[in-house]
């Protein structure tokens, strides 16, 4: 086993290593990208070949050629773009509102151990309900428009943020707080200068999970009742056995989730510069 501490960037992996193992020539950013794209191409090629050979039913499974044709058509008509924007908007709005309210409430529980202990079983109880089960009544309460989808996304994201923020605030270094108290700081100063900053890594870590939950809320809301959005498009197409359109919707959701994940990644790295020096350690076995 050899321990290797790489530099500030995880990408610059040219650190010297004493390992006996030789690094594969594909183990570079470009090399990996080529392999990954190759895997996708092989997957679609096999699928298409299977459809042509008659092993795979184009009716039940769709076909890559059909998917690309549908994709091209929906792009040209502008439908795909407008549906994507709609779903994306719902997801991001739900994510932001849910994360802000959840985090603030979770942090505020630090102020009173009494209140925190009082509400803890309720939070656990609410959290144990599969939030998706709320979808029908959320639509009932908030209608079939934008608000019901956002509300569903909020219900999914808020509790995740709340629990993470509360836990992180509870775990904040007591010695740092004591130090501030010995300096004469009051409770608010301890909260804002010692507790809140130390919870930020945990809160930002929930962004990754929550951005996904935001999309889940938006899509499920659209499944139940809506006139627009990718969820609506997928639901409608599958009821018409238009599998190619279903796949277009699913792949578009995948791309959205993918892009959002990397946006969060950038936010995480730029918002916590002090963390950078600590996350570059890598253990190689």
């Amino acid at each position: 086993m050899s321990l290797v501490m790489s530099g500030t960037s995880a990408r610059k992996k040219t650190a010297p290593r004493n390992s006996r193992k030789k690094r594969s020539t594909f183990d570079t950013t470009l090399g990996r990208a080529v392999l990954q794209l190759l895997a996708v191409a092989v997957f679609f090629a096999l699928w298409e070949a299977g459809v042509h050979a008659g092993y795979i039913s184009a009716f039940l499974m769709g076909s890559p050629s059909g998917i690309f044709a549908t994709f091209y058509k929906l792009i040209l008509s502008g439908e795909l773009l407008s549906d994507s924007w709609y779903t994306l908007f719902e997801a991001i709005l739900g994510f932001i509102i849910g994360t802000i309210f959840g985090s603030l409430f979770g942090l505020a529980l630090w102020y009173s151990v009494f209140v925190a202990k009082l509400v803890e079983p309720f939070i656990v109880a609410i959290n144990s309900v599969p939030k998706i089960a709320l979808a029908p009544i959320v639509v009932l309460w908030f209608g079939t428009g934008l608000i019901s989808k956002v509300a569903l996304a909020v219900s999914l994201t808020a509790l995740v943020a709340l629990i993470a923020a509360y836990q992180a605030a509870k775990d904040a270094d007591v010695d740092l707080q004591s130090l501030m108290i010995s300096m004469g700081a009051d409770k608010h100063q301890v909260f804002w200068k010692a507790v809140v900053p130390s919870t930020l890594p945990s809160i930002i870590a929930t962004f990754r999970i929550n951005i996904g939950f935001g999309l889940v809320g938006a899509v499920v809301g659209e499944f139940i009742s809506s006139q627009r959005g990718l969820g609506h498009m997928i639901f409608l197409a599958s009821s018409l056995y238009d599998l190619n359109s279903v796949w277009v919707g699913l792949f578009t959701l995948m791309i959205l989730g993918f892009v959002l994940y990397y946006v969060i990644d950038i936010i995480e790295r730029t918002s916590l510069p002090w963390k950078q020096a600590t996350t570059s350690h890598q253990v190689q076995v």
């Binding site: 300096m183 100063q189 130390s198």
Partner: peptide, 25 residues
Amino acid sequence: YMMQKDLLFPWRTVMGNVLLGLETR
């Protein structure tokens, strides 16, 4: 108060850490 652990706030720069007490005041 100074302890065995330096208790520097990791999210604050050297300057930020030095200023902590004066900010509080």
